[in-house]
Design a protein around this nucleic acid. Sequence first.
RNA 1: GGGCCCGUAGCUCAACGGUCAGAGCAGACCGCUCAUAACGGUUUGGUUGCAGGUUCGAAUCCUGCCGGGCCUACCA
Length: 574
Amino acid sequence: MARILITSALPYINGVKHLGNLVGSQLPADVYARYMRARGHEVMFICATDEHGTPAELAAARAGKPVAEYCAEMHAVQKRLADGFGLSFDHFGRSSSARNHALTQHMARRLGEAGLIEVRTERQVYSVADGRFLPDRYIEGTCPNCGFERARGDQCEMCTKQLDPTDLINPRSAISGSTDLEVRETRHLYLRQSLLRDRLEAWIDSKTDWPVLTTSIARKWLRDGDGLQDRGITRDLEWGVPAQFPGAPWSGMEGKVFYVWFDAPIEYIAATAEWADAHGHPDAAWQRWWREDLGAGDVRYVQFMGKDNVPFHTLSFPATLMGANHDGTEPWKLVDYIKSFNWLTYEGGKFSTSQGRGVFMDQALEILPSDCWRWWLLANAPESGDADFTWTSFQSALNRDLADVLGNFVSRVTKFCSARFGEAVPAGGAWTEAEHGLARALDQRLAAYGALMEAMEIRKSAAELRAIWALGNEYLQAAAPWSAFKTDRDRAACIIRVALNLVRLNAVLSAPFIPATAQRILSALGCPDAGWPGAAAEALAALPPGSAFRVPENLFEKLSDARRAELEARFAGG
RNA sequence: GGGCCCGUAGCUCAACGGUCAGAGCAGACCGCUCAUAACGGUUUGGUUGCAGGUUCGAAUCCUGCCGGGCCUACCA
């Protein structure tokens, strides 16, 4: 039995996430976690809301609420949606938790003691009307290069020129529109990650099995220009982890908080501590996942994220953990494998909150059960390149894969048995070559499925799973119990007994992808407790003759053309 | 500007130096009738974006070009 630590990128707090966000980290992480648990491994699956930063403060202001209250509410919303999608986090924490405050400050102090933090004075744009410093992209003005009037302070979207906010002509606050801006001096803490450049590069180089997408982004940052740049890790904001605290090896940081990207990854650790607290466990319970000197030596740590998160997870966060262990007394667990994803687009374009374009998590659950979404999203996860959500593709996956191939198989087997033998696994008959052939085919596919799941090949795993579902229909067609029943009742009983067991096996194997449906099947079969199969021949005999079942309601309702067209129109945005 | 990824059957993708380039969907034909008119089988369909090069052999490696996407460090 292995011990596997899994973290999914933290969803940002300022609103409900769309399907692309879901499939970019949390959903595939969930599949992996469920699979590993099913294989009997000890799993710790952690996620949390990422609650700090300028957008959170602005969203709270727009909602007319104190930011703490806003975040608490949005956390509850995201928690409810995560539950709705069956995301099986061991803990869904909050980056604003007391645990994260303490741990972030602890890490910062350790980095300070290691000489990896320095105070720098810089000049930033301050908006008097908004009462806050403005990040570059929150300043708008006319592009000095092309004359575009709504250029952002970091870059002009029209001519793509990189800008400095002070380059803009007629600059104004993107928040309030105020032109009452001034450049003020402010002091910030910088993480001197450039000092760790060589160690980070050696560490990245040692990860020969990582996806190209992951390592190429990391190398780009390590080598681009003058190499890895130091990074400001504080901001002039109200809401966050205070950068000045008792024991801090610096002064003058009053009124400032740590940068959201500094404290967010630390929340992976803090959320595990939150988990321990919630279950009344001592610190040792979470430390054995995160500290190599306290039991994490045999942990395999896997992170799931969208490609935009890669620089922070391959460089800044490892630099933080390496630096915090400068004297060898705090060996924090570094990530062993990073699974990164491309983007999901919507009908050929981008998801857009402002335009109401694309499907968001709350809307999805109102339309159809979570497993329908899980299945399409996972079977089409953006692994090798961006993937595109279309209603046509979604309809096909739902109607063909789920309703016809899987759902109808369960239906035809249970109904046939119910009508001919009653609602219990029938006895009689012995295996023939047809059953042995089925078992051999299953063994092969099971091995392939397992290998793909171990490798986190999500799409390929889904395709293999679908092929396993199809084996049931092929077997029934070849064995034809409806014919056998007329001449050889025992033969038909044997076929249906095997088929009912295959229904059970399908439920077990499908659980990582469509957990709710798997549970419905298993409970209909009266065996909610189902272990991962070994040899197919044994798995096909797990339900003994006489064991009672009931015919479940149809597992999946199909999506009609009319309904599809209606949904297409509803979410087209614009 | 620089960097990275992608471009394979009508559609979505697989194959990552080696038997006729595969699968699902869509299309055609045949079969079955237990089942959500569901299922099974057969089959049509590709000068692998373009042009060169390396190699006994290239979708796969190299060069250039065309097209699409992403990143480029104060959004997260």
